[in-house]
Each structure stands twice: as structure tokens, then as C-alpha cells.
Design a protein around this nucleic acid. Sequence first.
DNA 1: AACGCGGGGAA
DNA 2: TTCCCAGCGTT
Length: 349
Amino acid sequence: MLFHKTLVNWYLENKRDLPWRKTANPYHVWLSEIMLQQTRIAQGLPYYYKFIKEFPDVFQLAEAPQEKVLKLWQGLGYYSRARNLHATAQFVASELNGKFPENYKGLLKLKGVGDYTASAIASICYNEPVPVVDGNVYRVLARYFDIETPVNSSAGIKEFKLLATELLDCENPGTYNQAVMEFGALQCKPQLPLCESCPLSGSCLALKNGKISQLPIKLKKAKVRKRYFNYLVFISEENTTLIEQRLGKGIWEGLYQFPLVETTTRLKEEEILLEEEFISFAGKDPKQITLYNSSPIIHKLSHQHIFTNFWLIKKNKLPENSVSIENLSEYPVPVLIANFIQDYNFSEY
DNA sequence: AACGCGGGGAA
DNA sequence: TTCCCAGCGTT
């Protein structure tokens, strides 16, 4: 049987019941695709429900303050997706009368929509014959055809895109595209794929050649960077604290945090208390400054390990721009900060 | 072409 | 630990 035919048959039998599969509404499909970039369905699903409930259409998303969008996105990671999502909603609402572009080329122009996402929306919503090539597709094709070209090399990107184009089921590209991805997620999994029950096992070259566990091949990425954060948690007698928004480029852009003193090396407790920058923010009265965590909290991201200390600093009064501790939960914050706020119950003050 | 960008689940 | 997830934008 044809490659695409086998996959679509498998898909119709085995696909998961997911909310964005019940519709061809481009707003819903677009939202789901942005959320699922580099994100597992299990992790993205609750966020999808939250967003659909809070913003039933593109106009309501467009009208929302960016902070509200970021707050709803909190915990999902890759926050530039949320900012681009919001910007694109505003563009579609105001410039396109609320109608998304109806083909690959037009969709590709939207912020946050790249080759994969434009192909996904165009094929699913408008039946345009364009192939998706995501992590699942790389894996399925690399194995089935025993291709050793690194999938994240420029040669690999070209080769797999071309192959995917040839394999595409032009009659129902949306269903086929979802079929390959679902097949990669459930059957042709990264670890311990289910080759015994695989409908393609008879013609899979990697299986035949005993190379399933070696494919796909990826080029190694850069090492993780270590960083050392000291957060200054001020607490006034009026139960207010100081927060700041992370500006400029870099991690957690646009999110809020406590005032931060970052050091280039790992310092002992006594040493940071002597740092000029630390003193200028926190003062040097040892009676008012205590370290909350007994050992550094290590927040591990795929590209950074952040060693964190939270310093509690009592003050009589704080500047006008301090915020009430009760209102802290309204601000979008990194998971690192959210965990602290939850763990440290401000109740004793 | 290479890098930066989150957080979490699975083995 | 290590891998990798319905990738994109910037440099």
C-alpha cells in the first residue's frame, strides 16, 4: 500500500481526540499550532482551553493587554510566542478584518508563523497541498528511508522537506500531515518505538538495517550556561514588595521578577553580602537581611542552569512603585519566581 | 549557519 | 542524567 494511505488509515484508527481537530477554524488551529511549537500536547492542552475560554475569537485576543496574555501563557515557556501571538492577533483583527490569510504564502508573513506552522494551518484549514516537517516527521522519514543526514543541518532540512513534498497526499493534505505527526508521536516514538505493531514495519529500512535507535541523527547543541541569580525580596510593613519587568532581549523577556543581582561566579553567602551592587540595593544591615533558601535553588532550563538565592529584606517603607503582595499574582512571572511565591507564604507579614 | 529561547515528561 | 517535544527569530 502507498505510504500516505497506510499512515492515514492508521491515523483514522488511532488518533487522539483533541479539541483543535474538531474544527477548521483558523483561529483555533493557529492558536494550537503556536502553543505546540516545541511543546508536548499534554503540556499545551490546558493552556489551549484557557485561551479559548478567555479569548473566544481573534478580536478579543487582540484587545487584551499584553500582560494578560503573558499571564495566561505563564509556565508554557518560550514567551516570545505569546508576544508574537498577541501582535499577530492585533494585525489580523485590525488590518485583515479578523480574517487569517488563506494560503501558505500569506500565513508565512505573520509573526511567529514559520514554515512548519504556515504549512500546518494552510493544509488543515484550506486544504492546500503543503507538507509539514516537524520533529515527528524527521523521525518517521529518517527511519523509514534510513536517512543519515542530520535533520538539523541545512542539507537535512532541504532533503527532508523535498522528501515530505513528494510523499504528501495532495487529495487530503491536512489529514495526511496530522497523520504523520500523530504516527511519530504515538507509534514511531523517539524511544522504544512500537515496531512490532507498526503497519510500516515490512518496508521500514531502518528496522531492516537495525538502525532504529540511531535515527534520526541530530547535530549536538551548545552546552548549558550557568548563571547565578540573587533575588531581593523586599517586604515593607505595609505588605508591599518591589518587582521589575525584564526588558531587552534574553530569557523571560517581558516577565516580572524581584530586583535581581546577578554574579558571574558562584559566591558564598558572606561574599555576596559584600558585593557593591548587592549593598546598594539591599543595604548592609544583617538584622534585616536573611537568606530564604538554605541551599541554592537550581532552575534547570534546556540551555541554562540558574543557581538562585532569595534574600528577604525587611524595610519600614518602600517607594511608591512598590506593589501590594496580594496583587503579586496578577503579574506574569517565570516559573522560578512563581514557585518561590507559592513556597514562601507571605502570611507571616 | 549557528545560536538563544522554557518547561516538563519519559526512560 | 539525557533526550526531545506539532519551531521561530535573530545574528
